[in-house]
Design a protein around this nucleic acid. Structure first.
Lengths: 349, 349
DNA sequence: CTTAGCACTCCCACGCGCAGAGTGCTACGT
DNA sequence: ACGTAGCACTCTGCGCGTGGGAGTGCTAAG
């Protein structure tokens, strides 16, 4: 990892940096050498802290707004802080109970669980929660249904994990009830195939099939294609954005607007998450300018995958200002992702 | 209507008021008597305008922030302005083309149309768009499907207008494949009934049915109940909220937060829309303190129903700051609602 | 009823000085 | 070599007063 490349800070520098981050996150005000000297148990004077701070500034972990103000962390400062955090952050009892309470209810529909989890996360952290639902690619199909709605036709695909994709199309000319029944029969043979496999199979069937059949099967293939890639592949879940709008979060107005804009452009947001997702293991933290988008929002992203066993299903996490309570937010995301994984494994059986 | 109760303003007062509103909306700055005298074609001096303004202030249509500042409209001022607007606001050619372009694509899925329309509205107006999809109550059911997903069971309901409701439940003990087939057969008899009627019918069937049947039918009834009322009855569609976050809209930070909060609490938002919806006819405009919620946000709401023939399907509209370009926003909402109604009528055949 | 004129009020931008906070540096002690 | 006390320095933020300017309200004349 990148943090191993850097010259390792001495333990005291590190302690000072962490103290600055923590205090700044708590108060939102630049922090002075004196307050660190007092409140943070290193038995040294403010002058020493000042020296350390100057060094940390030289190393690009801190800045000042102006000469005679306290220090605030840079993105790199936050990064060091995050990397030096103990792996298992504590949750407060109230939070623990919130999570336990939420997952105690029997929930079976993945989509529903995700919206709930996102809300849970946004409540826990006071930032915005977000989730990327599983891709349909590898989900086995339980049923494909062709529904005659008069002038139009609905194609309905039900996946093993509870996803339902639908598409409404104009009924092709010259398609009779017989064609529908026949197509329906063939579509039933897709059961058990994954969305991807089913797509390939459909194209093959369509090539073989008669005229009336071909269009219908192609429509179904199209439905699967839309479900697996592009536009409506899977709706991202976002919640608690109002948390970010508040005064306290002190996000700048136009960065806030840009963040919201991106959140509304699902594809773009998915792209960002894809960029930062495949990091090492459990938890991925992206701070400010570490990614162009988060840099533009002056925000940070904490995400974690949720999985059944070894296979990753999706991603869940939070967005907040770079001045974020990383410790607690990371603990929350980690905890929710863990419970979510357990739940998913259980549903999957 | 309320505006008929008030002493009718003279035509010149009205003109002055409207000029003030228009200029304030455009510039965002308090407007002076002089600028009105100059730019608004009434051939009178600023002194006269001042007198009129004083009178308008007395009547509560205007205020000033302080003694020597220009005037800004009160909510009542905006109200008068809106009420005196010509019924058919003009759209700019570019807007007209945007709308035409959007509706030119053949779209058949109502849900999809609504998200598209909401985005369209938010682009047209630069405010946030929102839509309430049709209630399922009166929608005829096309199909009810019981899908065996192993340990769980999915109940799927498809409505005539393309809505799909699903619920996943744990499979009750002792339900065999035979029970499922039998229940499935009975559920097919619901075809053509509305969601509401089907619910009643199901309860009746459940009462008659055998043990294995009862649970399944009750689950289906529950799915219908959830679809028609309460929590997930129908997901409100919201789009373009980032438009409101921008500097230009000059919405206060904490009112913005409150607005977002309400938008996130779907039920509450639906309540607000229900309160203001049933106004007279085409377009409903709610300005600031005219409704407690809009008052709290210092925002205005412009909504219009969309319908097939006589029956109202749902509502579509925009939210923006009270300092809103009502003329153009109203024209946009009206136009989109109209096209939407045409489209819905056409889909409905 | 309109309007020119004018006094008045209030905001706002500016300059000023000052207290306070916080730093950087230097010199001293261990 | 490292920590620390002390001190000068710098910069912000605030209060204050001041002047310009914008815009009003009023009055008196047409």
């Amino acid at each position: 990892m990148a943090d191993r490349d850097r010259p390792e800070l001495g333990p005291r520098k590190s302690a000072v940096l962490c103290a600055v981050v923590e205090q700044y996150v708590r108060t939102g005000e630049p922090v002075s050498s004196e307050s660190i000297a007092e409140h943070s148990g290193l038995g040294v004077s403010s002058a020493t802290i000042r020296n350390e701070m100057a060094a940390l500034e030289e190393l690009n972990f801190l800045t000042h707004p102006h000469t005679s103000a306290g220090r605030i962390p840079t993105d790199a400062g936050y990064r060091h802080y995050v990397d030096s955090l103990p792996a298992g952050g504590r949750l407060r009892e109230a939070q623990r109970r919130l999570i336990a309470g939420y997952f105690a209810e029997a929930i079976v529909d993945l989509e529903e669980v995700l919206t709930g989890s996102v809300q849970l996360l946004s409540r826990l952290t006071q930032y915005a929660g977000l989730a990327v639902p599983p891709s349909a690619d590898e989900e086995p199909i339980v049923r494909v249904e062709l529904i005659d709605m008069g002038p139009t036709l609905m194609i309905l695909v039900v996946g093993q994990h509870g996803r339902v994709d639908k598409q409404v199309v104009d009924k092709p000319d010259g398609v009779g009830a017989g064609d529908l029944r026949e197509a329906d029969r063939r579509l039933r043979t897709l059961r058990g195939l994954t969305y991807l496999d089913a797509q390939a199979r459909l194209l093959q069937l369509a090539a073989e099939g008669g005229d009336g059949q071909r269009d219908l099967l192609l429509f179904a293939a199209e439905t699967l294609r839309i479900a697996t890639q592009g536009e409506r592949s899977a709706h991202m879940v976002v919640g608690g954005v109002s948390n970010l709008a508040g005064e306290a979060q002190q996000m700048r107005r136009d960065t806030l607007r840009r963040l919201f804009e991106t959140l509304e452009r699902e594809q773009e947001m998915l792209g960002v998450l894809a960029d930062i997702g495949p990091s090492q293991g459990e938890l991925s933290v992206t701070i400010g300018a570490e990614h162009p988008s988060t840099g533009e929002w002056e925000a940070s992203l904490i995400t974690a995958p949720f999985k059944t066993g070894q296979t990753t299903l999706g991603t869940i996490g939070v967005v907040g200002p770079t001045r974020m309570d990383y410790l607690s937010a990371m603990a929350s995301v980690r905890a929710v992702a863990k419970r979510l994984s357990e739940l998913a494994t259980e549903i999957d059986r």
